[in-house]
């Protein structure tokens, strides 16, 4: 037994090397394997799985966020287009109705004018015929008066 005998001891001492050394080394190697199987591998798996999970969830979330942003901008564009289209439709409809109104108004005016003209012409012709009749009647009466006067004489 190689014993470094210090402190004047015949046996033992602080630097007493013996079979404790290789046995302890073997024990620590064994402990390394046991801890590797019981501690380092399982805990490492759990921790790394979680790290992977967090990483993938994060990238997925980022992807989804980008998708959502894209969709949002798409929808905004669509909304803008729809609004413009609606505005256009409204203006067109307004123009159309305006035109129709004007046309109808013009038609009604012209019709009214035409019927007024017709009525006036009718009135005129009737008046003329009435005047002519009156003239004839007056001439007849005048003739009659002249004849009576002449007859009375």
């Amino acid at each position: 037994m190689t014993s470094l005998l210090l402190f004047g001891a015949s046996e033992g001492g602080l630097f007493d090397f013996d079979a404790t050394l290789p046995l302890m080394a073997a024990q620590v190697v064994l402990l390394t394997y046991i801890l590797n199987a019981l501690f380092f591998k399982p805990v490492g798996k759990v921790v790394e799985d979680r790290e992977d999970y967090v990483l993938t969830s994060r990238t997925e979330a980022k992807k989804k966020l980008a998708e959502v942003e894209k969709l949002e901008s798409d929808l905004k564009n669509q909304l803008k287009g729809a609004r413009q289209a609606a505005q256009k439709v409204i203006t067109e409809a307004e123009d159309d109705s305006d035109k129709l109104y004007k046309e109808a108004l013009a038609l009604a005016n012209s019709e009214a004018n035409a019927s007024r003209e017709k009525v006036r012409r009718e009135i005129d012709s009737q008046r003329e015929s009435a005047l002519n009749q009156l003239k004839l009647d007056a001439e007849k009466l005048g003739d009659l008066i002249v004849q009576r006067l002449l007859a009375a004489k």
Partner: peptide
């Protein structure tokens, strides 16, 4: 330290003393 049992029996320190287990020619602490 080591073996000097005749002095100071009340000293609480035992440095460099080991409980030996003997396996054949091998001795361990």
């Amino acid at each position: 330290m080591g073996t000097s049992p005749f002095l100071l029996p009340f000293a609480a320190l035992e440095v460099g003393q080991h409980l030996y287990w003997q396996f054949g020619k091998l001795r361990i602490h």
